[in-house]
Design a protein around this nucleic acid. Sequence first.
DNA 1: CGCAGATCGTACCGATCGGTTCTATCTCTG
DNA 2: CAGAGATAGAACCGATCGGTACGATCTGCG
Lengths: 199, 199
Amino acid sequence: MPVPKGSTLDPERTRATILEAATAVLYERGLDGIGVAELCTRIGVSKETLYRHFGTKDGLVEAMLAARSERVTRWLARAAASAGDDPGDQLAAVFDALQQWYDDPVFRGCAMLNAAAQHHVESVRAITARHLGRYLELLTGIAERAGALDPHLLGRQLLMLVEGATAVAAHQDAAGAGEHARQAALTLLSAASRPAPRG
Amino acid sequence: MPVPKGSTLDPERTRATILEAATAVLYERGLDGIGVAELCTRIGVSKETLYRHFGTKDGLVEAMLAARSERVTRWLARAAASAGDDPGDQLAAVFDALQQWYDDPVFRGCAMLNAAAQHHVESVRAITARHLGRYLELLTGIAERAGALDPHLLGRQLLMLVEGATAVAAHQDAAGAGEHARQAALTLLSAASRPAPRG
DNA sequence: CGCAGATCGTACCGATCGGTTCTATCTCTG
DNA sequence: CAGAGATAGAACCGATCGGTACGATCTGCG
């Protein structure tokens, strides 16, 4: 093999290490809240290595955000799937998983919304939009399986609850935010599957 | 009078002019997305004048955010009050007002959440938390007048819908976000005033 | 008119930024 | 062992940052 695999000199392993460490550091400090020099120190890698793998700081940021979006979406989808076949149970599982995230000491809000607010670059905004699209797809699927009269509308309203709960948990009070949002979500789910109570 | 009033040399007028212009520019470009030099050019004021009035850039940012928070909260409260005495109408008016904001070409999401995501300074985060507290107070008041069984819970869920709708409108699709959130809010309001449909 | 002070425009400062380049070292392969 | 490639570490670069200093200009008051 011309390229060593699994060793400390394996480029792919180095890249993965950088991505993983940068994800945590950039989430804690903010995309522009830490320079490349200090970032490399925290990661434990030289600047030359970082630039060889990602070209620019923006390149690292975009790769990190894309990887994080996919990872988080899979995590939420797995939480929903592990709750069984009932759409209500799946929806509840999503918000229970969110509450566990809110209770994590490192929780600092939705990384994608934070990134879009910090970094006024089109590619970053695109990653955020795609991330919300993934969430919307997951929630709309639950709405469809629940027999909602307008699953796309309900999915969008559930997405608002997810992002709203995350924002409230981050900036106001994390305690119970997931549970409160879950209860609201189940109320919407229940109301969307039967005729509207008033007209 | 030792101090001229209303003229271009009136310090209070100058300060108000800076605050108003900086609010728009910093919202468009981001708190750290524009330097003091360019900011002063856009505002039409010299650096010395800006620093005499606000001390530091952070001082300007904090004064701007605090003023914006109060102004926006009053705007939302007025929209609710002008809808009459019915809590449902008041809640609908809030989301109708939000939809008008979402349709504004300069809309770029909740300025307070953006600020907290960008500027990792404790005072900015405090302003954001206070802002969400003002919203919560407004929404909890509506929930109380509607006779909700748990007005604090409902107020918090409505706050999630407000911030969630703003985030979705900013990063996914602004069309109809306010209306969709309004419908969800009215569903929650209706359900919160009567016994829960299942337990 | 003459003074006080608010403002402008510009030059300037030290610090930090993203990014490049260099040499030395290490690891794996042949 | 020899060579190729990956990495570390530090020096270095131009640009930009927030903030300060200074002289010129303007305005309103006495």
